[in-house]
Each structure stands twice: as structure tokens, then as C-alpha cells.
């Protein structure tokens, strides 16, 4: 077994991130790292080093499901592992992401008041006023934080449930970032093999 590297402890970052959202919602902005880093790595290097090495959420699930034994370690149902579901979930996830950006814009533009709410599973509104202590910037900055944290918490809940029911890192199968970076790598490697054919 290989020795532990610094990046094997990034699950601490993921856990801290989730907890900070209960303290001050503006910390939600840090989650942009989990969106930008995998894209930069896949576009720049043409690999999935983010998923393979650095993803703190994946490490957290493998720790909880593996070391702590919370996972049943059953196979996921076939439909959940299908490309149709993975690509479908990617489209759904990003549609909801753009809806969130639109709501942020409306608050920036002053057409909508700030809602101190975290929306779980795109449905359940949970009052989150205790984690809001004002912002030095526009209220839109806070609205984005509430919206982004909703996405992060929702996907953690989904990943946690599938961790319990199926394999520890079941989330990785339908993780929208993972699906997207795999598509980027596919596209990059097609052009790479075309270049070497020339």
C-alpha cells in the first residue's frame, strides 16, 4: 500500500467547509474551488487528477463508508450507473445551477429581496438566518452564498445516502463534476489521437 500524501487529508477541508456554512454563509464561496479546480486540471492537463487524488468529498465518503463501516457496500442499481442517468443528472444539476445564478442576479439588480434560506434537494426551504451576519458588499454576494451552499449541502446529502445504501464512493458515479471532467478528457484525447494520426 502506498504511503499517505498531503492530499490524502483533503477530506478535512470538505468537512470544515460544511461546518463553516453553519457559522457564516459567506464561507460558501470557498466551494468555488471544488468547481474550478477540476475544470482547470481536466482542461489544462487532460486528466482526472482532481477525482483521483484531490477530491475531499470522495475521501470523506470512503472514510465514512469504508473505515467507519457505514456503507452496505452493495452494487448500485444498473440504471444509476447508466450513461443516460449520469448525463441526465449533469444536465439537471447545471440547469438548477443556472436558475440559482439567475436568482442571484435578481438580488444584485434589486428586483428581489435577499432570502436567508438554504434550499435542500431543490425543494425544501430551511431558514438559515443564524449564519448571516451581513455583508460588506451587495446582498447579491450573500444570495449567491446561500444558493451555492444549498447546492453543496444537497449534493452531500445525496452522496451520503448513496454511500449508506451502496458503495462508499457511489456519489462519484453520478457526480456532475466528475461526469463533466470525464467528457472534457474524452474530447481532449480524441483530438490528441487525431493529431498523432496526422
Amino acid at each position: 500500500m502506498r504511503s499517505k500524501k498531503w492530499y490524502d487529508y483533503l477530506w478535512i477541508f470538505s468537512l470544515t467547509y460544511l461546518l463553516l456554512g453553519f457559522v457564516n454563509i459567506l464561507f460558501a464561496w470557498l466551494g468555488m474551488i471544488c468547481f474550478i479546480a477540476p475544470l482547470v486540471i481536466s482542461i489544462g492537463c487532460g486528466n482526472k487528477a482532481y477525482c483521483n487524488k484531490f477530491c475531499g468529498r470522495g475521501q470523506l465518503f470512503s472514510l465514512l463508508g469504508g473505515r467507519f463501516g457505514l456503507s452496505r457496500k452493495h452494487d448500485m442499481p444498473k440504471w444509476m450507473r447508466s450513461k443516460a442517468f449520469r448525463y441526465g443528472f449533469l444536465i439537471f444539476f447545471f440547469t438548477m445551477f443556472f436558475v440559482m445564478l439567475w436568482n442571484t442576479y435578481l438580488v444584485f439588480a434589486g428586483n428581489q429581496p435577499l432570502k436567508q434560506v438554504v434550499k435542500l434537494l431543490w425543494t425544501f426551504k430551511v431558514s438559515w438566518h443564524w449564519a448571516y451576519h451581513g455583508t460588506l458588499f451587495s446582498e447579491g454576494v450573500a444570495q449567491f452564498a446561500f444558493g451555492f451552499y444549498s447546492i453543496m449541502l444537497t449534493s452531500t446529502i445525496l452522496g451520503f445516502v448513496t454511500m449508506l445504501l451502496f458503495k462508499p464512493r457511489s456519489w462519484c458515479v453520478y457526480c456532475p463534476m466528475g461526469t463533466m471532467t470525464q467528457l472534457i478528457c474524452k474530447a481532449k484525447n480524441v483530438t490528441k489521437s487525431q493529431k498523432s494520426d496526422e
Binding site: 482526472k48 477525482c51 470512503s62 449520469r86 464512493r169
Partner: peptide, 11 residues
């Protein structure tokens, strides 16, 4: 064809 390239196997 169905591999998601997550790298769990590598670890």
C-alpha cells in the same frame, strides 16, 4: 465503456 474514471481502484 461504463468506467467513470474516479480512481477509487487506483487507491
Amino acid at each position: 465503456d461504463l468506467c467513470v474514471a474516479c480512481g477509487c481502484c487506483v487507491k
